[in-house]
Structure formats: C-alpha cells, structure tokens
Design a protein around this nucleic acid. Sequence first.
DNA 1: CTAGGGTTAG
Length: 895
Amino acid sequence: MICRWIAFNPSKISRVLSPFSSLFSTKLSSSSVAKLDDEPLSATNFTSDQRDYFGHEILFGMKKIGFREYLHGGQFRSVASELRQVHVEEIMCELMGESPDLSVWFFKELKDVYGFRHSRLSSLLVSHILAGQRRFKELQVVVEELLREEGKKWESTNVVWDMLLFLSSRSKMVDDSLYILEKMRDLNLSVSTQAYNSILYNFRETDKMWDVYKAIESKNEHTYSTIVDGLCRQQKLEDAVSFLRDSEWKDIGPSVVSFNSIMSAYCKLGFVDTAKSFLCTVLKCGLVPSVHSHNILINGLCLAGSIGEALELAGDMSKHGVEPDTVTYNILAKGFHLLGMIKWVWEVIQQMLDKGLTPDVITYTILLCGHCQLGNIDKGLRLLKDMLSRGFELNSVIPCSVMLSGLCKTGRIEEAFSLFYRMQANGVRPDIVAYSIVIHGLCRLGELDLAIWLYDEMCAKRILPNSRTHGAMLLGLCRKGMILEARALLNSLISTGCTLDIILYNIVIDGYAKSGCIEEALELFRGVIESGITPNVATFNSLIHGYCKTQNIAEARKVLDVIKLYKLVPSAVSYTTLMNAYANCGDTERVDELRREMKANGISPTNFTYSVIIKGLCIGRKLEKYNQVLRDMASEGVTPDQITYNTVIQHLCRAKDLFRAFELLEEMKSRNLEPTPATYDILINGLCFYGYLKDAERFLCSLQERDVSLSKFAYTTVIKAHCVKGDPEMAVKLFLQVLDRGFDVSVRDYSAVINRLCRRELAKEAKFFFCLMLSRGVSPDLDICRVMIKSSDVLGWTIKAEKLSQEEINLSYRMVPSGANCINISFFNGSLTVQSSFGVPSTNTKRHWWFCFSSLKPFCLVQFFGMGLKSLSLFLTVTSCKVVVLGVRTYLVNV
DNA sequence: CTAGGGTTAG
C-alpha cells in the first residue's frame, strides 16, 4: 500500500513523513502494515476493481457537493460502511494539499462518528499536520492510539513525551517545552540528550543555561559547544575560552564548532587579530579548521575593511586542506560591495564560476544590490526576472526586497507596487521588511493614504509594525504637514513604554523644524535628553535648519558648538545648512569662513555644499569667483550635478541673461546630465518674467513634443502669464491640459488664476474657473472667497464669524483613504448648527488612527455665496493654526 | 559564515 501511495504521489511522502517515520520504523513490521491495510472493515460486495475506484468516487462526490455537506449527507452514510483504509488514505492525501484542517477534521469525524479504525499511514499523516500546527495535545492522542494499535501500549510513552519535548523546544516554544519537561519529571520519564540540548540551545543567551546544563545526565559534544556558543553570545568571551580549556570533558576534547563560536564573537567585537590567533590554537589542538572557520575569519576581515587579507586567507584555504565554497565567495563579494567596488563583485563571482561552484540566491542578491546601488534599476529588474526563471522564487523574500528598495529610492513607486503584488502571486510572502520598504517609499512621496492602507493590510496579516514602520509613518505625516498627528503618534509610541530610537525623534524634530516650529522642536529635543536618549548629528542638523528657517542664524551658528559639547562631529550637512542661510543673505564672507572651518575639521564639501556656495556668489553678486569655485570642485573630485546647474541657471535668469542660461542648458546635456523638471521651470519662468511669453509657449510645446517630463509649475507659469496678458482663452486651454495630465491641482492654482483674472476684470472667465474648481471637488479658500465677493458679478454675504466651543463642534479627523471628514450643517430658524457626523473618536478601532484635537478651539467661518436664485453653496472652513477640514456641500435653502 | 528596510542640507 505504501509503495502504491509513493508512486501515486512521490513528492508528498518525503515531505510529510521524514521526521516522524524514523521514530516508528523500528516499531512496525511491514507485514503488520500489510495486514492492517488489506483488512476490510466490513463484508464487502465490491469487486477489487470497483474498490480501486471507490476512493476516487467519494472524492469526486465531496468536491462536487462540498466536503462537510457530503460527509453529513445520506450518500456518504450509505457508503461509509464500505470505506476502507486505502480510501481514507487517498482522500486524506488529496485533502492535505487543499486544507490540512479539513483533513484533520475528516480523520476525527470518521473516528468519532463512524468508529473508523485508521491505518498507520493516516495516523502519521494527521500527526504531521498536528505537529506542524503545534497542536501537541491532539498529536499525543493520535500517536498514543497508534502505538496502542501496534500492541506496544504504554511503554512507548516515554518516546512520545520526549519527542513532544524535542519538537516544542525546536519550534522555539520555550514555555511549552518547560511545561512538558516538568510533566515528564512528575511522571519520572527520562529525557534524551537531544531534547535537553535543544532546550539548552534556547536558553544559551541567559543564565538559565547553567540550570539546564546541570540537569543533563549524559552530555555530548553538542552540549559543550552550545555552552561555548551561549557564553560568546552573552559577551562572556573569557568564560567561553576557559570553559573550553578547563572543563570536565577533557576526554571528548574541544570541537572546531566551539572555536568557530569564539572566533565569530571576536570578529563581531572588531578583534579580528584575536580571532585569527584562535586559528593557530585550533591547529595546536590537532583539530582541522573547517571551511566554516575560514569563512568566519574572512567575513571578519571584510567587515574590518581588510579585503586584501581576506583574499589572502581565502587563497590559503587549500593549503589548510579545505576549499573555498559558495559562502566564501559570497562573503568576498559582499566585502567588495561594502567598499563600493562593484566591479570587483563581478570579478569574485566570475572566479567562483570558474571554480565550478554554483551561485546561490545570496550571490544573486549581492549582484542585485550592486545594480541598485549604481542606479541601474532596469538591470536589476532583468536580473530579478532571471532569478525567478531559475526557480529561486520560493526561496526568499529578500531579493524582492532589494528590488523594492531600489525602485522606491528612485521614485518608481508604481513599479514597486506592482512588484509587491506580483511577488505575492508567485508565492513570496512579504514580511515586515518588505512592507516597511514600500510603506516608506509611499510616505516619502506623500502617498499617505496608500501607505495607511498597506499598513492596515500588514496589521491584518498579523505582521506587527516595528520601529522602522513607525518611522515611515511619522515621515509620511510630517511630509503631509500633519505634524500634530505625527506628534500624537510619537506620543502614543512613547506611552507604550518602550525606549524609542533617536531616529524616530529626529523625524518629528525635523518635521517641526521644517514647518518653522523651532520652539516645539526644542521642546521635543529637551524631552529626548531628559529620557536619556543620545542625540546624533542629524538631530542637531534639524535644529540648525529650524533656526535658519526662522531667520535666527546666530542661534543656528551656536548649535555647531553644542554638537561638539555632545562629543559629536558636525557633518557636511551641518555646515551646508548654515552656509545656505548665509548664502541666502549674500553673505559670502561667512560662507567662506565656514568653508575654511569645514576644511580645517577635515570634512569634505559635497555637491550640496558647492551649490550653496554658488548660490551665495549669485546672490552676493560675486559671480567673478564662479570659475574658481568650479576649479575647486574639479580638484576635490566633486562633479556638478543638475541642481548645481539649476542654481546657476536660475541666477542667470534673474539677471536677465537668458542667452547664457540656455547655453548652460546645452552644456548640461552635453555632460550627460538630464535636466530636471525644475530646470525647465526656471527657464520658462525666466522667459515669462521678462515678457517673452511667445518664446515660453514655444519652448513648452517643444518639450511636450519631445515628451520631456514637466512639472505643474511649468504649465501654471505660462497660464498665469496668459491671465496677466489678458489671453484667457490660452489660459483655459493650458489649464485643461494640466487637469488632463493628472496633476494634483490645488486650490492655490485656481486662486492664482482667479486672482489675476479678477484683477483684469475678466469676471466671466474667473467664474468659469471658480465653477471648474467646484466641479472638481476643490474647496475654495478664504482668498478666493474674498476675491469673489469683491467681484461685482457674484453676490456674497458673510453671515458671521463666531467662536465655537469644543462641545458645539466636536471635531475629529480620521485618517482613512476614503476620507470621513464629514460635517453636517443644518440651517434652522436662522441659527446655524454644526455637527461632526462621526462622533467621538473610538478607541476600539485601533487599526485606524483617530486624532482628536482636544486642545483645539476651532474658529468657524461660514460664508454663503449666491450662485443662482435658490441654489446656495455653503463653504465651511474650520481654521486653527491651519485649515483642518474643508468641506463643500451644496444645499437648497429658501431665502 | 554570506543577501533586504529609517532621520538631516542645495
């Protein structure tokens, strides 16, 4: 029977039976199995041929009717008595592939309802499912019954218990394994060394390790090497060495495995030389260092930056009687990758292929990292595709994560998203890292809604967010200007009691700094210090930025010294931020001073630094020094990038030197620097500003024809110029193009156009844009309201502005993609009532975040605009420090 | 023993 089953489904049997079958193989003779299998449960009227098809027919029926329905139906009951173990086995195998739970249920149902006696194979199948699902109690029942069937009765209890202990311990179920251990002691059952070693392994990072160690009666080599490994992990390296030297097990002698643990630990602490000396000790003890030992040292050398020595040691391996393996080459490839020497990564892998070794997933992943690091995203995508076609798809989520990260970093979020779902279709399940990468990518680009959606999806899959995920969400909130919400999230993380990373604080401090709230940034910074968390340079850099943003350069300058007080070193960012503030005032003297200080402290200027320096020259009207700066850049090995060019082009435009500005555009292209959308913004703006509207329009068209990606600004600049020049037709034409191209058109864009049109008394066109805005679901802001009120064609009343208390308007804001910012407004007996439709924030909907602005006293301004006789549009604007909710509803009100 | 994710400046 078993042979037939193997032939029937060979792939399943090895996967399903391997660990358990060894346990029983000695206990069951093949003849007893055959006897059990062939014994019918009841007298049968079926021929043998019919019998063969019986199982298939039942399966067919089950599939057609539905499993549970079939089993409880009359059709099944009528054949149940004819069911034989062969059929049950076939059905169970079939069901396992579809649903392990169903097959357990089938097993139990047959036994409990029909009193079916299951075969050894069925019992083993079910045991495997139960063991896999850690349902140890049920497993025990099944296995015990199986043993009883075999006539072995209870003397096997010990084996069962020990196996349970071993399995639970190996599955890292520490509490369960301790419980089982306790029970076994109560029952006076002996514990195998294998099971004990596994428990020891789980406790090797704690002091409890010794209690387990003492309890083990017959210790073996594994026991000792686990202790050594444990001591290494507890940073007790000297204890590990002395345990190795003076322990009680001289008869067995130390193993290479123990030395490997010690060498690895020394490497991790950065003591590669000490680690190397242990290689000699290994030899002195008469042991042979394994490939493993060499790999540990080679890895240590690579991480220490000594790639030369690492290569040398790899070359010496054959002298020591071992050959480098795939892991060795992977380590070397990663070493070169870390040094940014991507070409050598290829070289190493080529050598590996020459040696006849096969690259594994890790080799490919390192290559993929190289492509992504060089910005060759498309090459990366091709490599990933190649990997998938080589059947690596089920191996790991990591290569996909590398690709996701590469796509996100280059802003190709749609492709990242599509890869994210394609990999799942291929059976690669995203983990916390993959989710965090995509969530971060979305947050970085301001796609907060999508990020929250993914975050919820992740939580629903019981993948718990960690510090990185929270960091991404904080960043997303800050980028959207939702600093209050970011702070609320940070506070809630703090209130969970775990110590937070400085980076999480940095994100919020920077959020404050960027929105000009230096006081709040400082308050949070003080909080960081009070909770004993060490700030890093980025923390201070954000503070510098915050001071500069609020025009307090003197304080910003002082932070530079504070950095040193904290025993940190100011970075290029620190200096560049400050220099930028001085450059914006054209203070080239201070810029130069900082440049000298930077040099004296051994910090190299970056592309950012140079563009700031050049900007300073432009604003300070010291362009004669420009060529000298270019020479400095060249000698420092810093090549100008697009933004350096943009800076110069912008200032040429401001100086009305459009000819040279366009010359620089050509120079950029000749240097293989693809102009950015901002480059075109600057040029188009320059043309419009000096009245070359026709040229601007022509330039815009030529760019469109060449399918160059343009920003919304390029269009609105030309549109605004048309409004000013009194050509609303062209303005309308271009504006519709902007909408067509899917740009995110904001109230400010409408406002800019409407303002200009009103100023030119083009009321008809202004009204057209106003209606266009309403039809696109964009709410007007106060500016537009004012302008429209002034415009003679539109009637308007300002009813009143009143302060509402928290009780009157319970304002909360829910972050969900669908947007639940619904506010009910009723106009009754001449008085106005405002209610939020979603009530008090609820704490039981934790998957969505609720923010209640409890400290907010909203200021409510309601304005009515007559858009016709009976149709009135009601605009509700709730303002505090910023506009929180903007809702537009059109109501029919009898006036 | 080898592969993936975060903060700051133009």
